[in-house]
Amino acid sequence: MEEQKQAIMEFLEGKKGKSKFYFSDFCKIFPDLKQREVKKFLTALVNEGKLEFWSSGSTTMYGIKGAGKQNAEED
C-alpha cells in the first residue's frame, strides 16, 4: 500500500500546469490492478489529508490538497 501511495504522490507532483485528475488517470499508473484496488490507495491518501476531491458537480477529480489555481480562487 505504501509503495502505491508513493507512486500516486510522485505522479501528481510530477505534473505541471494541471492539478486535478480523473480516477481513470490513476488507474493507468497501475495497469495490472483492478479499479477497486486503486480506489483503496486514493481513499487512504484522502483520509490522511494528502489528497482532496474537486468536483464539477457532475464529475469528480482528485488532486493534492490545497494545490491548483482553483483553490487560490476559492479561499
Binding site: 500546469g17 494541471k18 492539478s19 486535478k20 489555481k69 482553483q70 487560490a72
Partner: peptide, 12 residues
Amino acid sequence: DNICEIPLAISA
C-alpha cells in the same frame, strides 16, 4: 491563465 488550469478547461 491566472485563474484557470488550461488543460482542465480543454478536457472539460
